[in-house]
Each structure stands twice: as structure tokens, then as C-alpha cells.
Amino acid sequence: MKASMLRTAAAAIRDIMVANKDYLTALDQQNGDGDLGITMVQGYSALAQMLEQETEQDLGKLFMKCATRFNDAAPSTLGTITSFVLMGMAKALKGKTEASLEDMTAAYEAGLALMMEKAHSKPGEKTILDSLEPAARALRANLDKGAAQALTAAAKAATEGSEATRTMKSVHGRAAYYGEKSLGLLDGGSVAGRLIFEALTHIAG
């Protein structure tokens, strides 16, 4: 992974968020405030746009710029949470201009750890983490199979994780007021997480 690949990745994630904007919004309207589609499109559009002109080669500094830009463009809760993942990755990648699949996986794990710490969340609470975290485990388990296969496995795990949010009760944010009533509903954040890995699979394949 090099800086130039991050540009391709951000553009692919933006495209998939644009294509699914109304779907994400509809999911969020079930038990949130309905801004999920807009937040994701705003955040990833800003990233893709910034990366088109960015010349920074240090992956750590580049991820840090992404984190700051994302938070500026999408200061909602999920936007801020996404920024923490990017910041955690930035710290792990600082000083590197090239990163192996294992480096990227370790950085991604560090990003998730930072997000869990700052948002006081863990898997099983019907959030974006329920797709992002299974994806991390799948990446780790498939390191020796190369990027394309590892990402395919991660996307599959993210999809299953997202589906599993139907059996979970919301504990965070406005959705928490729905408690028992949130059972059966698919969590929009987890779908956004699944879409990220779906987009990455397309560019890796």
C-alpha cells in the first residue's frame, strides 16, 4: 500500500456511499436522525477530493490529514468516530511510505481500538463496529492469502456482522431510546461499514 492507492480507495468508497445514500438514510430514519447517508457522502467526498491533490507520501501524515478532513466535513457522531479510526491508523503508520498487508491490518486494528476507547463502545452494541470488527478478524486470519483474498474474506465477515445487528439492541445515541424496539432492525452504521469493505474488494480484485 502506497499513498496513491489511498486515493483510489477513497474514490471507490465515495462512489459506493453515493450509490447507497438513500438506502443508508432510510435505515437511519428507522431509529436515528436520518443523516447517515449525507454524513457518509460528505465525509468520503471530502477525502476523495483532498487526496486528488495531496502529495504527502508519509502514510501516517496522510491518514492524519484524512482524519482531520473527515471530521471537518462530517462532524456528526459517526463522522467523528470514523476520524478516530483514521487517527489510530495514522499513528501506527507514521514514518512509513509503504505498508504491507500486515502493516495495514495492524494499523486498522489500532484504529478500531482507538475508536472503541473514545466512543466507549464494543462489538455487539448494534453499531458500525459490528461490521468493522469482524472484518479486522478476517483480515488477520487471511494475511498469508494476499490482499485480494483477505479483503474478500473481510467483506464477507462485514456483511455477516452487519446482518447480525438485527438480533442486537441499541445502546448508543438516539437509537438507544428505542431499546427493545430496535430488535429486528438492521443498523445503518454497520451497513456503512460493510460498504467500505465491499468497495475495497472491487479495487483489490
Binding site: 501516517g60 492524519m64 471530521n71 467523528t80 478516530f84 487517527m87 495514522a90 499513528k91 482507538l114 473514545k118
Partner: peptide, 12 residues
């Protein structure tokens, strides 16, 4: 949240 984020930027 904002101070936490600012501290991450500072630590970097």
C-alpha cells in the same frame, strides 16, 4: 470528543 481528537492530533 473534540478535546480527545485534539489530543490525538497533538500526540501525533
Amino acid at each position: 470528543l473534540n478535546f480527545d481528537m485534539a489530543c490525538e492530533m497533538a500526540e501525533f
